[in-house]
Design a protein around this nucleic acid. Structure first.
Lengths: 340, 340
DNA sequence: GTGAAAGCGCTAACAG
DNA sequence: CTGTTAGCGCTTTCAC
């Protein structure tokens, strides 16, 4: 591989001059610029990223840590962040935690070893203990995404979780459902805790006392949601509607209904959080609380880039985006409304 | 950030000793190892990736270039490669081309600037001209994935494309279909060219002369497939079955059928290449030619890692994986079989 | 066993 | 405007 020295030699100038024309970091005569650019093109020179990073102390690298790129919500987020980063001259590392705390910490270490300039982190937990872990491992601008970690100085871009739950429960209750199941996520994650709390509030607001047997945590996991939903459906007094806290859990529920020989929405109404791109090929087309994934991702990366550029410390503020109820075919009034 | 120097100081040893214990590259006494490791832990030292890469000439970086991570086939591939790479001590850059040649070249440049140790490339074109471009831009071990670029020295891991088409057409013809539409991909891509050629062969083998009006290229794109399928359906003599060359084009077809007020498989049979993870929630559940995505990805990364480690030049060989027909509900015998 | 020193490719400070 | 040079953090001879 040719180095900057080879370019200088060929162009008949000093190394620093080459650096100056590459980075436009000092004024150079038009004629010399031309000679240098010709030399670069002739020998196919490309600056050595690691050398540049080492010397300048700026890796031009950004880390994106998410649960699972296989989930369409997160892959959409990744695409947006990749695009914005590239435009800003950053490269992106995208890594999957699989919702595993240890793995998250391992990835954080790799990011630190690469001296990334900043990170977007969809963390696996939101509790104070994890906040401590994060703060001890992170030493670059970081913005939290989707899930929040309160006891932490980082900015967070999230959904308005309370509203998301409220919308869903209000809609279901409005349809006449009284026995409403909830497939929650995983304790210690803000997207679970906040949605769950708002669910309970909303249920009570409709005069429905939450039943423990109808509220089950399925770990944000498709197959666990499948099992949990089957169990709910097999209850002596099954719910007439279920609200799940994620897109993949919604899928799990739909599979469970099929495999139980039931029909949605005839036997059971289903609502999830997070939409899919082609609802019309699903059976049934799902009613969901949708979130503005792309806008949220854009906000997150803009926030991060701004923090990196301005060298301002994070303000610890939280930016919330509004969910929106998209009514399709997986919900209906209960078959046999309970007596008032 | 602490450096190796700080560790050496704290442990009371020389820099080179610290390096030796970190990399186990030279024998060091147990006692000193302990002292060094304590020092590392105490100050939270983590080797500087760029410095290491610069000095050792080994970036420990692998590039994965694919069309679109949003496509479940590619995100599955990415997960496998990330996992295997991490186990082997490599980090991964994943980048999307959006099927754009210029963008592919831009990404290749970034990879070269980072001095990646190797690449897995799902290229956007397969013709000789593009092969030339690739060879002039690539100077590290590279393995081609999914699409092949024949005039090139790189190993390629692909589907057995001929067989994929044959399976699909045989099945459709066996069902009694004579007017079979084909939604092909994009010219100059092997996954288009090879599948198309095999399609025509298979059609003729069944005594069906391919009709130009029934064969349309939809660019491997979901919405173009939607449009193309609608057009096919609106033909005076529409096909009774359509075979599409990708998973997303299959989605586009299913949407087109819905939006045309038709029913699949009653009015039209549909087959695609590439499966989805939860077929049972689709309407209808789709019949597809499935490919072993994870095994193929594993083969690709193993091949690459082996090439990097052994420093053997690529053999230019092609490893093909067998497709498998998965019959579900999107196919049936034609409503009105043509007279023999 | 351990330590001193050269140098990977680059940037930036400074002298000309 | 151009050229020389120090040194980013690390690995790796090569003396000791």
């Amino acid at each position: 591989m040719p180095t900057i020295k080879d370019v200088a030699q060929r162009a008949g100038v000093a190394i620093s001059t080459v650096s100056a024309v590459i980075n436009r970091s000092a004024p150079v005569s038009e004629e010399v610029i031309q000679r240098v650019e010709d030399a670069i093109a002739a020998i196919g020179y490309l600056p050595h990223g690691a050398a540049k990073a080492l010397r300048s102390g700026d890796s031009r690298l950004i880390g994106l840590i998410l649960p699972d790129i296989t989930n369409p919500f997160f892959s959409t987020v990744a695409r947006v962040i990749e695009t914005v980063c590239m435009r800003a001259g950053y490269m992106t590392f995208v890594y999957n935690t699989d919702e595993d705390v240890d793995h998250e910490m391992r990835i954080l270490k790799m990011m630190r070893a690469q001296r990334v300039a900043g990170m977007i982190l969809i963390s696996t937990r939101s509790d104070a203990e994890h906040g401590q872990r994060l703060m001890s491992e992170i030493n670059v601008p970081t913005v939290l995404f989707s899930s929040n970690v309160p006891a932490t100085p980082y900015d967070a871009i999230t959904l308005n979780e309370a509203k998301a739950s409220r919308i869903a429960i209000d809609y279901l209750a409005g349809l006449g459902h009284r026995r409403i199941g909830v497939l929650s996520g995983r304790p210690h994650v803000s997207t679970h805790e906040e949605r769950l709390e708002a669910c309970l509030d909303a249920l009570r607001a409709h005069g429905i006392e939450p039943q423990a047997e109808l509220i089950v945590a399925a770990n944000f996991d498709q197959s666990q949601a499948f099992e949990a939903c089957r169990a709910l459906l097999a209850l002596p007094e099954p719910p007439s509607a279920i609200f799940a806290f994620s897109n993949l859990m919604m899928v799990g529920m739909m599979r469970a209904v099929v495999s139980s020989g039931l029909a949605c929405p005839r036997d059971i109404s289903l609502v999830g959080i997070g939409d899919f791109e082609w609802p019309e090929i699903m059976n049934p087309q799902m009613t969901v609380v949708s979130m503005p994934a792309a806008e949220m991702a854009e906000c997150a990366i803009e926030t991060l880039l701004d923090q990196i550029a301005s060298k301002r410390p994070p303000t610890g503020r939280r930016i919330m985006f509004d969910p929106r109820l998209v009514i399709r075919e997986s919900t209906a009034a209960p078959l046999v409304p309970l007596p008032a």
